[in-house]
């Protein structure tokens, strides 16, 4: 098979459909007049198309279509009763804006940070105890407890202030 045959055979389906332009059709016809291989190819393509057209899908009879229509009708009515997709989509689009803004504000810290009660941030217990020792509030092994809140509660305002100042609070 020559390169010319390959080219012509590529155009054969369109030639059969009558879709080929004037000049190409003339070329194909001229080639077919001289080339038995391409004539055979054309005959086989024609046979295949005729075979296909002669054996369409065997369509079912009327009772099948009646049943088909009944079943589909139920599905269509059911689909029609569900809320329209378009309207639901608009609702989601409208909702999306405020949600995005809210998330951004929360991310930036403008929203969502609840006002926590400000609790005194005490230093670690050891630091308070050693600060008291340094200040002479209690002597070695005389410090009252490791419970810092209890220790601070027992002190006078002046002493408490001194201790807290000492531990850097």
């Amino acid at each position: 098979m020559t390169w010319r045959c390959e080219l012509i055979q590529r155009w054969l389906p369109e030639y059969l459909d009558g879709d080929l332009g004037f000049f190409r059709r003339r070329r194909v016809e001229a080639h077919l007049g001289t080339c038995p291989v391409c004539r055979q190819e054309l005959a086989e393509f024609t046979q295949v198309l005729e075979f296909l057209k002669a054996h369409p899908v065997a369509l079912p009879t009327e009772p099948f279509w009646a049943e088909f229509g009944r079943e589909l009708h139920l599905k269509l009515v059911q689909a029609n009763q569900t809320p329209a997709r378009g309207r639901a989509q608009i609702f989601y689009y409208l909702l999306a804006g405020p949600v995005v803004v809210g998330l951004l504000l929360m991310g930036l810290g403008y929203l969502g940070q609840p006002q926590k009660p400000v609790l005194p941030q005490l230093a670690p217990a050891e630091q308070v105890v050693y600060a008291g020792l340094d200040d002479g509030l209690w002597q070695d092994e005389e410090f009252p407890s490791w419970d810092i809140n209890a220790v601070l509660a027992d002190l006078s305002d002046q002493e408490r202030e001194a201790v807290l100042k000492k531990v850097g609070y």
Binding site: P56, V57, W65, G69, L76, N80, A84
Partner: peptide, 24 residues
Amino acid sequence: KGDVPAFEELVRKYQRDVYGLACR
């Protein structure tokens, strides 16, 4: 506009084509 009978008219018109296509 949600007119089911109008759509069913379309179904009746094209059901054989669509079924044939699916069969193939």
